[in-house]
Write a protein that binds this DNA or RNA. Sequence first.
RNA 1: GCCGCGGUGGCGGAAUCGGUAGACGCGUAGGUCUCAAAAACCUAUGAGACUCAAAUCUCGUGUGGGUUCGAUUCCCACCCGCGGCACCA
Length: 864
Amino acid sequence: MSVSPSTSGLAYEPQNIEPKWQLLWEKADLFQNTPAQLTATSTQKNTAGRPSQKLFHLFAFAYPSGSGLHVGHVESMTALDILSRFQRMQGKQVYFPVGWDAFGLPAENYAIKTGVPPAKTTHDAIKTFQTQIKRLGISYDWANEIATNHPEYYKWTQWLFLQLYQKGLAYKGVGMVNWCPSCQTVLANEQVVNGQCERCSTDVIQKELNQWYFKITAYQDELISGLETVDWPNATKQQQLNWIGKKAGINIAYQVIDRAGQPLDSGETITCFTTRPDTNFGATFLVLAPEHTFAKKVAAGELAAAGVTSDQAQKVAVYLDSAKKKTELERQQEGRQKSGVFTGAYAINQLNNRKLPVYISDFVLGNFGTGAVVGVPGHDLRDFEFATQFGIEIIRVVKGPDGDISPIIKPNQVQEDAGVMINSEFLDGLEIMAAKAKIMDHFEAKGWGQRVTTYKLRDWLISRQRYWGAPIPIVYDPEGQAHPVKPEHLPWRLPEDVGFKPTGESPLKSSQEFIARTEKLYGKGWRPEFDTMDTFVDSSWYYLRYCDSRNTQEFASSERMSAWLPADLYLIGPEHIVLHLLYSRFFTKFLRDEGYFKFSEPFQKMRHQGMILGPDGKKMSKSKGNVINPDSIIAEFGADTLRVYEMFMGPLEADKPWDTRAVAGVARFLKRWFKAVTQALATAPTANQKITQSQRKLHQTLKKITEDLTNLKFNTAIAALMEFLNVWEAAPKTDPGFTREELSQIIRLLAPLAPFMAEELWSQWLSAADLTPDSQAPFVHQQSWPEFNPDLAQAEQVTIMVQVNGKIRGQFAVATDQITADEVIKTTAQSLPEIQKWLVDMSGATLPIKKIIYVSGRLVSLVV
RNA sequence: GCCGCGGUGGCGGAAUCGGUAGACGCGUAGGUCUCAAAAACCUAUGAGACUCAAAUCUCGUGUGGGUUCGAUUCCCACCCGCGGCACCA
């Protein structure tokens, strides 16, 4: 192909340059369809003839919202694009795919408001995003673009569901679920924020429903241990660990007793989970969650044998009813105020034969541990609060750190984490950790308890009573029995004849076609599952599909997945730490167990980009009017300026406010660079005899940029380029200037960061020498990365600082090759006149030097 | 309350196997060009003291201690901000 050299002269005009190269790159199919070119990494050669190595750079799937590309998208896309271009120039084979997390609520809510089908809204939004991204010069592999709402994609989402179903890892179950009255759908635990719906901030209520779950808990231990093998930010790993919430403790079974203090004939027991069995001599009561089966039995009047009167049973029933009606938010607003009711029943603590009254309170959670706790009010603040409120005895069994052994009457006396046991018979005198081990052994030996590990992680509720998602591929026979949709019926298509008015029921119920289709394929009286899947199901396996996005036989071939995954770099916002990342890891481990590939973690290296804030330092939002639109920045300054500015703002991971004036500073820098190069091209000598300061700076910069880009330190890389330009522009008029070869390096150096301008300068570089573009590699982005010369990258001389008693008092220069002459340098340092005056006392007498420290190439420290 | 991250000029930030604090950019001030303005370019720019000036000195990386010839960097205690979790037994 031919590339026409520019004739536009010296002025930098991004508005002319950028559309031109965008078009030519597109025509040339640059960097397209990479995964098809896999094959053995060691034999593969790129255009420059160097051995190739594969890299998978993953940008977090974007939701195609109607408001278009956000400057935050620009930040992370640009960072990955720079890295991709940089690595390609270094001979790596880089796969940098693009796709859309296209199912989801906003499009459906828009449909409810306007009647416009979500498919249309989504399609239009994607078009807008595509145009904006191409204008930015992001070198995506568009040939492998995917969208989760496409039947060829969600066919495999459904396939994945069925695989899980066949292995018993997708199941339907009844349970208390989070229900958003506004979105009219259930939510996963992960989608409830402060008792409110993550999307619309409506108070979430609890409902008992029969829903579909994925058994993520089957992998809970591996989800913990796998974190040790990946290169992720520590904070992220920590948060995942907290979410999984693994805890070691013991389940203790307390026998329920009758009025005479004898175990019930039914052998009824209440099992409590505790991590602090060491304090069990201080136990004075038991508390059950309202959902506990024993609580229900009491309410139903089934525990008369335990001495529960009908009056007490009645009170319990009332309490259970009121607890059920409370929203998550009401429960939180009560704060530490505790409600509860005595059941009338007692259990026995076999350690000391103490009778423990059994209470019910909603501060005990039904879904953690066993839903029942043993109350030790002296050493647990919640138990203390409950005991004081209900007048229950408090026993001290741990001595305070100050030796306090007085009765516990104030909350600040409640010793929770350290101390020595007292009032605990055979545990007395032991530190709590030792006591814990000893009593657990005791409980197990007696058969009263059993060591257990509990987890906070719950199974993943994936049913959604919404339209715009992948239908759950399940059909029910006339008896209501669930059956998987047959593989030949996939994709199990999302019907189009639905009403969008929220009714509290799944919108798919309104589809005649959906029901007719089910009856036709499966028989009269058969019904489809009307719920769709949580969109996190779609978006938690997309990186697998990327490897083989046009495969019609499989979700992706094993060969391709093994070749490209795990991803070498995943750049994703910190808001996805518990949801998407945990789910993705679960799917990966499951499919590995199914034998599709061998790796266990999908994302080997992950980093989080920070948030770009408005100029006011606050999160951008339409209501605050502080939103920066990338299109308007491109219109004013060009895409290269936008890219370089966003990378220059600060460290990638940090939140940083937008500074409108600083954008102009970056535009100035690019303009100066363009001018410097175009002017130099006109007079460039073919060879340069003398080594100049500018040359040294060039090679130092080449070295620095290579290091910084490798480490994702884009802001300091750009600062180094600016420094280089400052030195270049300040070079003496007598300097011979950079040679053609050096100018080529200077142009290539900028290519990853400012791809359009670099391409323009490259074409000028070629035409200045009457060269025609290489037909195999006509573009600057196909050239090799400039290597630095280590000799030239070294400074000619270094400044040695001289300290006297730790304070800087002078300095001198030394040739770089002389810095190992320790004795000479130490002597020179002492002989400096400005140092001499610090080496004498008030009377002028020379002070003895006690110690001389020389830090090679940096400083001499004199101690007197 | 628990877990994690952070605190450096007027602003964004740079420098942490301990070794010139403030790179680079923004802003500001003065200047060149211009009838004028913008743009562009040049110079200065942490605070303070002293000086005609040059030079020099003192202070300075959230606070208070410590280790060291030397601390933004390491240790201890605390304060503040941000993110996450939260009546999790």
